[in-house]
Amino acid sequence: MEEQTLFELVHNMDNFTKQMIMQWNRTFSEDLGISHVLVLAHLKQNGKSRPSDLAKILGLTPPTLSYLSEKLVEKKLAVRMVNESDRRINYLGITDKGDEVLQRASLEGQKLRTNLFEKLTEEERVQLANLYKKLSIIQHNENSHLE
């Protein structure tokens, strides 16, 4: 692949992602960013987690995760918990309200993507689905080698 074409592909992909996030931020009226939702999604899927583990898994710095956690706790979307056997260990867990907000955020994201993908032809959607599937397999294989 020519270097210019690869640059354009990466540039267009970044622009697309940035535009989708900005559009989601405009339509989702919870005063939360996508990073807050990613934290909630991880807590929903994996249960309570130590903040240091969350930061590492989500690729965030500990101060960033601390900031995100503070807002989630303040809005009662997450709670801090202490390990009873070792009180030095803290966890973050999702609340029922956090679960509801996460569901609404997911629905809003689905609506945005559906609206966008409906503008493609059936053939373009099939091509895009196949490309994403292939990229997911490649990414999975590369991550498997890192473990």
Rank of each mutant, 00 (worst) to 15 (best):
A78P: 03
D31N: 10
S66E: 09
L107C: 07
L65A: 00
E142Y: 14
K134R: 12
R80M: 14
K134W: 05
Y91H: 06
D99E: 09
Q4H: 12
M81E: 14
S35E: 06
E8C: 07
P51S: 06
K56Y: 13
M22I: 08
L128C: 04
G109N: 05
L65D: 00
P62W: 12
T5L: 09
Q45D: 12
S29H: 06
L68W: 01
N83M: 03
T5Q: 06
T61Y: 04
S136P: 02
M81L: 15
I34V: 13
T27D: 11
N143E: 15
G109Q: 01
K44W: 05
V39R: 01
S69Y: 07
D14W: 09
E74N: 15
L32N: 00
R26T: 08
T61A: 14
N90P: 03
I34P: 02
G98E: 00
L77M: 08
M22V: 07
A105S: 02
T17R: 12
K44V: 00
N141W: 08
E84Y: 03
V73P: 02
Q19W: 04
R50N: 04
Y132K: 05
D86V: 04
Q127V: 06
I137W: 05
A41V: 10
P62F: 13
L72H: 01
K119A: 02
S106Q: 15
N143W: 14
G93V: 03
R113C: 15
S29N: 08
S136C: 05
Q23F: 04
K119D: 06
L107E: 11
L112C: 10
K133M: 15
E3A: 07
R113H: 11
V82C: 09
F7M: 09
S29T: 10
L58I: 11
N115M: 08
R104V: 04
M20P: 00
Q45I: 12
I94G: 01
E8N: 10
E70D: 09
L135Q: 02
S69Q: 08
E118P: 03
H145T: 15
H42T: 07
V82E: 14
D96W: 13
N115L: 14
R113Q: 12
E142H: 05
L68G: 02
L32E: 01
F7E: 06
I94D: 01
N46K: 12
K111G: 01
M22N: 11
M13Y: 15
K48A: 06
F7P: 01
T121P: 04
K71G: 04
E8H: 08
I21S: 02
A41Q: 13
E147S: 10
N141P: 04
E142A: 13
H11M: 12
L120K: 04
N90Q: 08
H11F: 13
M1Q: 10
K71P: 05
E147P: 07
I89L: 12
Q103N: 14
K18A: 05
I137S: 13
L131T: 08
F28W: 02
K111Q: 07
L43C: 00
